[in-house]
Design a protein around this nucleic acid. Structure first.
Length: 817
DNA sequence: GCCCCAATCGAA
DNA sequence: TCGATTGGGGCG
């Protein structure tokens, strides 16, 4: 079936898709999901994606022609196209924005697109115009040329026309092998050549090396490591690290065929190091959970796996992953951030080797393209990755695991398009007919609710692996301790006593304080002046360690004033406790102990995290003070006490999820305590020990605390009982954005019931990065009406956009805010 | 989103 | 006065 027109997705933040004409010579080959080159605007050429093919001639404009196809086969599976379509509709964003996010940039080259002469053509220069001649001549000199370079000798407006006509004449073509130019970074390893070595006796070999003692030494070192553990890899660079051996010695050994060199891809490096433990068989509790998961999958339901810390969720994931692979399907394992989860990677690596891939935000574009290609060729069976791994061109997806599903990193607010990877993964799975496991020790309230409503199958693992006891919680009434003067700084004597006990018996203690810097505010005692960020409507935080003031929102730095810039008084006071202050106090109270700090500021240096991790592992660190960073990935046997000296600071945040977050954070850090011994203890210091959240955490009964959260959400109309859509308007001029938000509010009032609309009002942070921000919060009822309301919102936006004066206003929409 | 063009701004 | 910045419109 030949179609004459195509709807093309362009990598631009513009509404909808664009209509192009399919030239007759491409009509046979073009398919949905292929990349195409198309002109757009005066002079630009973009790589677009075929979204749809049809025969409906547009009547309001004359479509341009597609220049060429970039693929022989659709690069994007139809499941992904439906997924993109769903995302753009659900999250009210443009499909082009999703395309930009989903594709590695070298797969959607614009001006970097390369042209070359068709091999073996004879060119009839008589019939070429001057631009065409220039281009041909340039290509004769240098085989490949890109669009930016063409701009140097052809007028911008003529570029597209010139290329098109030369392609039509079959003189030139687009270089289609772009992706194949990339090679993933590889690292050299060494191994003993077993064939050669086993054919001779050791004495023979040593005789051979008699005159080269250094070679002999190196050979014996490699042989020793090999016999010790044949599975263990030997990195080439490690051999030369201490300067004991020279490259020439290794070269000679390789020439004698005793040692071989081989290469492995860099990003799978850590997986080849260290021991690989065999999995224990599933415990009774795990077996029961597994049966429940199987049953849910049979019924076509996704699973919420609620397993308390160290209950062995990973074990169950592995089990299902292996089953999926054996059934010939692919697996996606999603993590909130790319922190290597050794346990799972090692196991999968051992079993699936080269069929395991990684995909995350830290890869270079080369590496991304490489993974892309291998997924498309179905060479990779398992992908471990962050939210952007949802967009790989899976051929046969069978299972998606979303680990730590409650984590807010699955929907960062800073990068567009805004979507929640946890929810999106379930839609993607539906497109492929795949199953989903959402796993967490502290599920989000939304997922818990869906499980209670039986939209998700709820599988609970209530006991730690090996029946190890869960940590005990104790509340310390800081008010009382303060009144009876039994405190030092932010610590009660009681808490200090407990930490001291741990230090004395060489156990490690974790102290959580989730606030960066030293102090929130530097304030002048005489005139009350506080230091605001010049770009944002936010006070700057004092960082004592680096001795500067930082804005945590825009990153701006300033030096700390010695005197008040307003009244010159030197009476500057600090207020609000940051993690640096907690760290400082611990150092003072425990001068002999090794006290370390872990937060984004102290971990900025290269390898800072690795170094501290080693210190913790080796037991050198006695007390670790940190922000939420310490709640993830630090599983050490020797930690038995977790302390939270200022627990209240987590609750008094303007956010309806504050209590949920506090519960999740406290539970996650508490999971670090007593993983093996079962002697874990968590001390929560608070002014409000009666606060329901602390009481419920202390009780440690998940069903009760979720019941509490759900009641609160219901009472104050928050998710999951309503759908939230946050609209944020931004502009450099405050009066303009204020008027615009009033106007948009009035349009919305025309279409939506008044109780659904909150605002417009100034955002909690009224100015960010020199942009003033106003917001409108929509609380919409769930169910049938929701999609109807959403259409009305779209209609409101259209009306709003008709006002030309408001077009310069940036509009951000957060669905499921 | 990016480009073009016109209008406006601001330092000489 | 001129060059630099900002706003608005269009793109298939």
């Amino acid at each position: 079936m030949k179609s004459t027109f195509a709807q093309i997705i362009l990598p631009l933040n513009l509404k909808g898709t664009f209509t192009y004409k399919v030239p007759a010579e491409l009509a046979e080959k073009i398919e949905i999901g292929m990349r195409v080159l198309v002109p757009f605007g005066g002079k630009k050429i973009y790589t677009g994606i075929v979204f749809d093919l049809h025969d409906q001639e547009p009547d309001t404009f004359a479509p341009k022609e597609i220049i060429n196809l970039l693929d022989d086969f659709p690069i994007l599976p139809k499941e992904q196209i439906s997924f993109w379509d769903w995302l753009s509709k659900y999250y009210l964003c443009n499909i082009g924005e999703i395309y930009r996010f989903a594709f590695p940039s070298s797969l959607k080259l614009e001006s970097e697109t390369y042209l070359k002469l068709k091999p073996g053509v004879t060119i009839d220069f008589q019939n070429l115009d001057v631009n065409e001649m220039y281009l041909i001549q340039a290509l004769e000199v240098r085989q490949l040329i890109n669009l930016t370079e063409i701009e140097a000798f052809i007028p911008k407006k003529e570029i597209v026309k010139t290329i098109k006509s030369l392609i039509d004449l079959q003189y030139i073509e687009v270089d289609e092998k772009i992706a194949e130019k990339y090679k993933a970074k590889e690292i050299a390893f060494l191994k003993i050549n077993e064939e050669e070595v086993s054919s001779k006796s050791l004495a023979q070999i040593l005789l051979l090396l008699k005159k080269a003692p250094k070679q002999q030494e190196l050979f014996l070192l490699l042989l020793e490591q090999h016999t010790e553990d044949p599975e263990k890899t030997i990195k080439k660079s490690d051999i030369f690290e201490d300067g004991n051996f020279a490259h020439s010695q290794l070269k000679s050994l390789m020439e004698k065929n005793l040692v071989l060199e081989y290469y492995l891809q860099k990003d799978r490096l850590q997986t080849y190091e260290g021991e690989i433990e065999d999995l224990d068989s599933l415990t009774d509790a795990q077996l029961e959970a597994k049966t429940e998961i199987d049953k849910a999958f049979e019924e076509g339901k996704n699973v919420l796996l609620h397993g308390v810390t160290s209950s062995g969720k990973t074990h169950l994931y592995l089990d299902k992953i292996e089953e999926t692979i054996e059934a010939g399907k692919n697996v996606l394992f999603l993590l909130p951030e790319i922190a290597i989860t050794k346990q799972i990677v090692q196991r999968l690596e051992k079993k699936y080797g080269k069929q395991l891939g990684f995909y995350h935000q830290k890869l270079t574009d080369f590496e991304r393209v490489e993974v892309w290609r291998r997924v498309r060729n179905n060479d990779l069976k398992i992908l471990i990755g962050t939210r952007n791994a949802l967009f790989l061109p899976y051929q046969n997806l069978g299972l998606i695991v979303v680990d730590e599903e409650h984590d807010s990193a699955y929907k960062p607010r800073e990068v567009s398009p805004f979507f929640n990877a946890k929810d999106a993964s379930q839609v993607l799975a539906k497109m492929y007919g795949a199953n989903v496991i959402l796993g967490s020790a502290t599920p989000s309230v939304e997922s818990y609710y869906l499980a209670k409503k039986e939209k998700l199958a709820y599988v609970f693992l209530g006991e730690r692996f090996g029946k190890v006891k869960l940590p005990e919680f104790e509340l310390i009434n800081f008010k009382e301790e303060q009144d009876s003067k039994k405190i030092i700084g932010n610590f009660s004597l009681k808490l200090i006593e407990e930490i001291k006990k741990e230090v004395d018996r060489k156990k490690q203690t974790m102290i959580l304080h989730n606030r960066r810097g030293y102090a929130n505010v530097v304030e002048c005692e005489s005139c009350g002046y506080v230091n605001y960020c010049s770009n944002c409507d936010v006070v700057m935080t004092y960082h004592k360690f680096s001795n500067e003031m930082k804005c945590h929102y825009c990153g701006q730095k300033a030096s700390k004033p010695n005197a008040c810039p307003k009244c010159n008084s030197e009476n500057l006071n600090v207020r609000g406790v940051g993690v640096e202050q907690i760290h400082e106090e611990m150092v003072k109270i425990f001068p002999e102990a090794e006290v370390d700090r872990m937060d984004v500021d102290s971990m900025r240096k290269k390898f800072a995290y690795e170094k501290l991790y080693e210190k913790l592992e080796d037991g050198e660190t006695d007390i670790l003070v940190g922000t939420q960073m310490i709640s993830k990935g630090l599983d050490f046997e020797n930690i038995e006490l977790v302390a939270i000296p200022r627990a209240d600071s987590m609750l008094y945040v303007q956010d309806f999820r504050a209590e949920e977050r506090a519960f999740q954070l406290i539970t996650q850090v508490s999971g670090r305590a007593g993983r093996i011994s079962g002697e874990g203890k968590v001390l929560i210091q608070t002014y409000n020990p009666e606060h329901s959240v602390f009481q419920l955490i202390k009780e440690n009964d998940p069903s009760k605390i979720y019941k509490h959260f759900l009641e609160e959400r219901k009472k104050f109309l928050y998710p999951p009982f309503v759908k939230l859509i946050m609209i944020e308007l931004k502009h450099r001029k405050e009066d303009k954005v204020n008027r615009a938000s009033q106007f948009l509010g009035s349009i919305l009032h025309k279409y939506l019931p008044p109780e659904c609309i909150l605002g417009p009002e100034k955002s909690p942070i009224g100015k960010l990065n020199l942009m003033y921000q106003y917001q409108i919060l929509l609380k919409l009822p769930r169910g049938k009406n929701y999609s109807e309301y959403k259409n009305l919102i779209l209609k409101s936006f259209e009306e709003f956009e008709e006002i030309t004066a408001y077009q310069s206003i940036k509009k951000l929409i957060f669905v499921d805010f």
